[in-house]
């Protein structure tokens, strides 16, 4: 009897240990799986659910709404305006950054005295938080304390009274200024790397082949820089479409809803008006839209490179 119990216990512990043996690898990965589930899958699933219910701090309960949240966003004129604003602001910002970044890179690709010091200084804005950059431009621009109007007045000799952050179109200008100030260095450094990678001998060959500097730029520099340029543009467009911090600090979406971007609109829906269900539904749609645009950008822009 005692022997039988012993044997049973032994058999039990044997099966237990062989079970551990067989599933040991799963035990090893389980913390990671749990972490991913908790941090990614669960919030994602939760966000899907939120998008389809009433989730509003002013309304008790989470009644099922079907696609009503989505409908409300799509039919909201402010949302449509915000998408348009986002599109053109992002395009304009990236275009400005591309042109200035390219000019700077062209100017700095040849070594000269002090270049070693100048390049890191150029890159400083990249390392700042966008909120700080926004705050910094707010201090410079916002009337009546910002020195910008005073400086322009001193230069032009007449009173300048521009409301940089609360007046259209100056509010756009301020946002583009802050964004370009921060992100032109990104274009600059990537294009500089691209330019430095073009062998000098190619320019010598072009020169002997009869190319003037302008022709060398269009027939040698530009085609060889194109792949790098397209990658930089794709990165920046995707990033600029999500612009939020600078707007939050500089214009708060104003004047009116003129500088509402997609991100700012969604923020307002969710965290100012507490329509979390609607905000989440909008966020899903924006994410899908941005994915489609990015996919198109990457496919479309990178195609000539592969050919």
């Amino acid at each position: 009897m005692a022997l039988g119990a012993d044997a049973t216990r032994r058999r039990l512990s044997q099966t237990a240990s062989s079970w551990v043996d067989r599933h040991f690898r799963w035990l090893l990965v389980s913390p990671a799986v749990v972490l991913i589930l908790a941090l990614t899958i669960f919030p994602l699933g939760y966000a899907i659910w939120v998008a389809f219910v009433t989730y509003d701090f002013n309304i008790p309960g989470h009644a099922w709404r079907g696609i009503d949240n989505f409908k409300e966003v799509v039919t909201d004129p402010n949302a449509r305006k915000a998408i348009a604003t986002t599109a053109w602001l992002a395009t304009a910002a990236v275009a400005i950054e591309l042109v200035i970044g390219l000019l700077l890179a062209l100017a700095m690709v040849r070594p000269f005295r002090g270049r070693r010091w100048l390049i890191p200084i150029f890159l400083l804005p990249l390392f700042m938080s966008p909120v700080i950059v926004g705050q910094f431009w707010a201090l410079l621009l916002t009337e009546p304390f910002g020195p910008t109007n005073w400086l322009l007045g001193a230069i032009s000799g007449s009173d300048v009274n521009i409301r940089w952050t609360t007046q259209t179109p100056w509010a756009y200008f301020s946002i583009l200024l802050a964004d370009a100030w921060q992100w032109t260095p990104f274009m600059f450094v990537i294009l500089l790397a691209g330019l430095s990678a073009i062998p000098d001998d190619l320019y010598s060959a072009a020169d002997l082949d009869g190319a003037r500097p302008r022709q060398a730029f269009f027939f040698v520099t530009l085609p060889l820089l194109l792949p790098v340029m397209l990658v930089a543009v794709a990165f920046r467009v995707i990033d600029a479409a999500k612009i939020f911090d600078v707007i939050y600090v500089l214009t708060k979406g104003g004047p009116g809803t003129d500088t509402y971007t997609a991100s700012y609109y969604l923020y307002e829906q969710g965290f100012q008006l507490f329509h979390l269900g609607r905000g989440t539904a909008g966020a899903w749609m924006f994410m899908i839209l941005l994915s489609v645009v990015s996919y198109w950008l990457v496919r479309r822009l990178l195609k000539p490179v592969e050919a």
């Binding site: 001998d201 010598s204 060959a205 020169d207 082949d209």
Partner: peptide, 16 residues
């Protein structure tokens, strides 16, 4: 160079 009317072959070929 472009007005000298000479051609050069480079060590690394320098093809476009």
């Amino acid at each position: 160079p472009r007005e000298r009317d000479i051609a050069m072959v480079f060590q690394n070929y320098a093809l476009y």
